[in-house]
Design a protein around this nucleic acid. Structure first.
Lengths: 212, 212
DNA sequence: TTGATTTTGTTACTTTTTTCACAAATCAGC
DNA sequence: GCTGATTTGTGAAAAAAGTAACAAAATCAA
């Protein structure tokens, strides 16, 4: 099998597989079967084989998957076998926290530009990056080769940030602001709000208590 | 309709509806139809009606939904029409960032205990909370009425943190550590890792470039 | 080399989720 | 109070995702 439409859930699971394979690899394991990996991820083994089948044949029948090879294959499939340069728009509390968070670079997402439209912030230096006026995004995106935009503005300014980013030729957007944004069709947007998971947890706890 | 099994995707969408309704409410809108809300969320209007139908009848035929009422109804459905007291385990960089992040309290998730097993950290004060030895979780969970555990340890210590939390009688866990954890059946766990969204974005960008 | 055993890749089947379509309810104007 | 215009709630249909089952490939022992 190869390509066609790939379910969103598959992409999410690939990220999980990657996480677990990484931990296993660090523990010195070399080979794993879909069955064992499935146990570790708490999914169905067929599910794993099917998810991987969208991208190619990475296993060896009768043997299983070579962990390092599989990690490489999944990274390639997701497009994270390379660096991505990012623009961060909105240098507030959250923005600053992300700029300081060096996990970004470790995972291959390198924030190379920090932008804000507040005159008081422009010119200041945050984690080694000078804060630049959002209106200058276009030039910077071109000059620095930025491909991903990270929105960390307050919700009411998220749409404007998105507009600047789109206009500047950015290729995709991660929106941390608690607001939906509208962008032209081809540009993918992902929303991040970990309170959604808190809500889901509150729901599940409440549900099980209601049953009891 | 009422209760039965509710899709995970429905819960996620309810959180999105809530976000958008909140923003609309602040803008002074009072009533909205499933059609308009659907446009704002970029989902199918039937989807919205069906999602809500799992929990009750909140709309008025021929009219639409009263926004404030709907917000209340969704919050009740999710179980976030109340406060939740939380225990945070693992006072590293991420843990400290979350402790400082006052959005938690604003959204009704109040972190009332900070725990770590590192002797150097125990006794120190972070954002007004004294860091307590993880082994004392049980007493504190009882005395402070903590219901949700937030794991922010390094991945290799996530399972132990989970074990302490489960033993202490916690009702649910949010795991920020990049590792899967095993807990007894009835206790719900939600995983938070925003790099998954970065991966999804990288994938979509790569895909569309491949097509071009 | 053959046969037993393992485990993948893939097709067929099952279940779940989403979308469609329409009756039931509401409201405004006459 | 009736008529027409809306818009919900919901059962039926369609689409999508997940699971099971098995042939094909690989390994190993005899």
């Amino acid at each position: 099998m190869k390509s066609e439409h790939i379910p969103k859930a598959t992409i999410e699971r690939l990220a999980v597989y990657l996480q677990i394979l990484g931990n296993l690899g660090r523990d010195g394991v070399n080979i794993i079967s879909s069955d064992k990996l499935a146990q570790a991820c708490k999914v169905n083994p067929s599910q794993i084989r099917k998810d991987l089948a969208y991208f190619g044949e990475f296993g060896v029948r009768g043997v299983g998957y070579y962990i390092q090879e599989l990690i490489t294959a999944i990274k390639q499939s997701l497009g994270i076998d390379r660096h991505w340069y990012c623009a961060l728009v909105g240098v507030g509390n959250l923005g600053r926290a992300l700029l300081r968070h060096n996990e970004f670079a470790r995972r291959g997402f390198i924030i190379r530009g920090a932008f804000d439209c507040d005159q008081d912030k422009i010119g200041k230096v945050e984690s080694g990056l000078e804060v630049i006026c959002s209106k200058r995004l276009k030039t910077k995106v071109r000059d620095l080769g930025l491909e991903i935009g990270i929105i960390t503005t307050p919700p009411e300014r998220a749409q404007r940030a998105a507009d600047y980013l789109v206009e500047s030729g950015i290729k995709g957007i991660i929106n941390f602001a608690p607001a939906r944004i509208a962008v032209p069709e081809p540009i993918p947007v992902e929303y991040v709000d970990y309170f959604h998971q808190f809500y889901a947890l509150a729901f599940h706890i409440t549900l099980s208590q209601h049953r009891a």
